[in-house]
Amino acid sequence: MTTDTTSDDPLAALDGTARATLAAIADHLIPAAHGMPSAADIVTDGRLRFVLGARPDLAEGLVAALRPGLGVDVASRLATLQRDEPANLGALQLAIVAGYYTDKRVRELIGYPGQEAIEVKSWLLPEYIEEGLIDKVLERGAVWRDPATGDRAVVEGLPQTYAERFAGMPDDSQGGHDGPDGA
């Protein structure tokens, strides 16, 4: 199953038996279903090489999780890892999941284009202001607790709407009891 590996190849640590075990586990964790392909079909040499190239630290845990001594039954192997070797199980799951979800076809199928650069249009009036949601917050008045009284602050002359807030504020904006903080 493994081909053209060299000593620098991140896959060199995985022999044919380990690769076959990995494929069986991949198919168990993420089988073909609901229009999605199996991880065994996706996490081939190229994807695994990408994952281990990015995260060579995963190789040790992966090799341990795929060792023959854990038997041939996939469910039993995973249960043993969960109980006794959670770090190795974590490396195994991450290698399979990362190989799968960095695949172009899988990303297209789940509608995920990657983390995209989207322009922030800060010059536009936000929808929540247009919809009046900010006005509702302002209408309810001050929320903070005034240290001078211990009660919810009462601030005279606070703007009741967004439009009013930006029409002009009181000179020093130190209204209510908030000046000396009760110090």
């Binding site: 922030v120 800060s122 010059w123 936000p126 929808e127 929540y128 900010i134 917050v137 302002l138 309810r140 008045g141 001050a142 929320v143 903070w144 602050a153 601030v155 606070l158 703007p159 967004y162 807030r165 504020m169 009181p170 020093d172 904006s173 130190q174 209204g175 209510g176 908030d178």
Partner: peptide, 28 residues
């Protein structure tokens, strides 16, 4: 970046230097 006037704080005499960032569909 921020929207001035949050009533959870005492009124400010100086606004944030930049307008607020988007709040997204979840924020809405």
């Amino acid at each position: 970046s921020g929207l001035p006037g949050d009533p959870a704080y005492p009124p400010d005499s100086e606004d944030a230097p930049l307008p607020p960032l988007p709040i997204g569909a979840a924020g809405m």
